[in-house]
Design a protein around this nucleic acid. Structure first.
Lengths: 191, 191
DNA sequence: TCAACATGCAACACTCATGTTGCACTTCAT
DNA sequence: ATGAAGTGCAACATGAGTGTTGCATGTTGA
């Protein structure tokens, strides 16, 4: 595990930690090289306060990545990946993930070393993702001879691309529908 | 235009510039925050030499982006986007682009300000890309009601994803075939 | 050949981010 | 209420990267 609950933090301290992580996401998303000073300012906190909770810049980023990865894992679980019908699960999961990835784009994008909590969670999510795709394949939604890992990668790419969308804040369900339609049928004419 | 041929450089100087740009790509691809020192070392050149040709770190990166964007534009042109049959053009362009993007991933990925040469070239490429897709649509390869800009974005995403492939150096034509197949037909069963 | 060009090397000034510490002050938990 | 935990502020040390300059030494091209 990470640094979760080493010593039960006081209420205000926990508030600070949250503010710092959210500010870090906001600031670093716009400029990955931003300074601790800028992050502190955005969090409405002194720079030294950040250093009290996070030993170093890298520690902060790791914590940020872990936090976001946990949210992402939750977003997947909330879609009932292995009980709901495949198409329903895929739609719900996609919509959930779009929201989380939209709000935590930086944190979910940083390359982590393979033995960090964040990396472990991402691997776990990938596995569960393939499991859902397998169910969809068994249901005849995906070609029987398809390489599920390639399918998963395409799926990830489509989600990532959907977030680059111009400042038009389209609702997640519409985007999710387009993603899944494109994933399954491509852009060719529906024969 | 950029800084192309302000004063005709001497032969060895031009060699240095090439070495520097190639080294910058290699080093920065692995660590976007790498120092000029590291780039200079990788280029087999003194750090001061870099500063003689490129006023600042940013100038170097801009030149790098421009250089790569020109190569990319060339890769597209070599596929005869508006004379070859759409499917042939798409395949050739994809294979060419895969090679260029593979070799200049960092340079083509940096966010540039909108009025740089690199950004202009990228916009131009996007326009030509949509033109090819339009021809494919007219030929019945793409659904008549498809949003060509979404198609283009999916296409870009598929190319990007294909490059993340594990260290298995698959040949560009195979990858290109998979990309176009996925783009047109998706991953569902071929009805 | 020879003069302009290019490079390596060493040294320097400058800026900026990081991480630490001490102290006064506020907020929370009980 | 009271002590512990948390915070802001100021100051400091450190390190690293950037950009510049001068000079001696190769290299190029006409």
């Amino acid at each position: 595990m990470g640094e979760t609950a080493a010593q039960p933090l006081r209420a205000d301290a926990e508030r600070s930690v949250r503010a710092i992580l959210e500010a870090a996401e906001r600031v670093l998303a716009e400029d990955p090289g931003a300074s601790m000073e800028q992050i502190a300012a955005a969090a409405g906190v002194a720079r030294t306060t950040i250093h009290r909770r996070f030993a170093s810049r890298q520690a902060l980023i790791e914590a940020l990545a872990s936090s976001a990865a946990r949210r992402l894992a939750r977003a997947v679980d909330d879609g009932r990946p292995d009980t709901a019908p495949p198409l329903v699960a895929m739609h719900r999961i996609t919509a959930n993930v779009l929201q989380v990835k939209g709000a935590w784009a930086f944190a979910l994008g940083v390359a982590q070393d393979p033995d960090s909590e964040a990396a472990a969670l991402q691997r776990d999510i990938a596995v569960r993702c393939v499991a859902v795709l397998k169910r969809a394949q068994d249901a005849g939604l995906i070609a029987p001879d398809a390489d599920l890992d390639w399918v998963r990668r395409v799926y990830y790419a489509l989600i990532g691309e959907s977030l680059h969308g111009t400042d038009a804040p389209t609702d997640p369900d519409t985007l999710a529908a387009r993603i899944i339609d494109t994933l399954l049928h491509g852009t060719g004419p529906h024969t």
